[in-house]
Computed example of a mutant assay.
Amino acid sequence: MKTTLATLTLAALFLTGCATPKQWEATGGSKNDGVVQTSYELGQFESGQTDAGQGLAVATARCKTWGYKGAEITGSEKNICRTMGQYNCLQTTITQDYLCQK
């Protein structure tokens, strides 16, 4: 009975995933359009934990290297499945767009 309970507990923990700290990285955009894209990756059982301020700092730094004064968030996060398994997504890319400020 103890073995079954321990196995069920471990299985429940495994299936619910874990909150994994993730860092936003500048992954795209356009200097001419003044748009910066930041992203991070999630595995199948991961639940990403991000800091919106860190994402804004990454975008602001990119905008400043392009000659802009700062950045502001635009729209909402986009989730794109990069690797599809038989029943669910195995790898997801989360992307956020920022608009550079003049």
Rank of each mutant, 00 (worst) to 15 (best):
G85K: 04
L56M: 13
G48H: 08
T38P: 05
V58L: 08
C63M: 09
A59N: 10
T9V: 11
K64W: 01
A19C: 00
A61F: 02
V35F: 09
T60C: 02
S76P: 05
C100W: 13
A71K: 08
K78F: 06
T65P: 06
W24K: 04
A11M: 14
A6V: 11
S39F: 12
Q91R: 12
C100S: 13
T65Y: 01
G34S: 13
R62V: 14
N88K: 03
L5E: 08
M1T: 03
T60F: 07
N32K: 13
I80V: 11
V58R: 04
T16G: 06
D51K: 04
G53Y: 06
L10S: 12
K69D: 15
G75A: 06
T50C: 04
N88H: 01
Q49Y: 14
T93H: 00
T16S: 12
L42R: 09
C63E: 06
Q101A: 00
G17R: 07
L5D: 15
Q91E: 12
T92A: 02
A19L: 08
T60H: 00
I80N: 14
L42V: 07
F45M: 12
C18K: 13
T60E: 14
E77V: 11
T27E: 00
G53E: 11
L42D: 08
T95N: 01
I80H: 08
C89Q: 00
T4Y: 10
W24Q: 00
G34K: 08
Q96I: 11
Q44H: 10
L42Y: 03
E77S: 09
C100F: 08
C81R: 03
L15F: 10
Q96Y: 09
Q96V: 04
S47Q: 10
G55I: 10
A6C: 01
C18T: 12
N79R: 10
L42N: 08
T83A: 05
L90E: 06
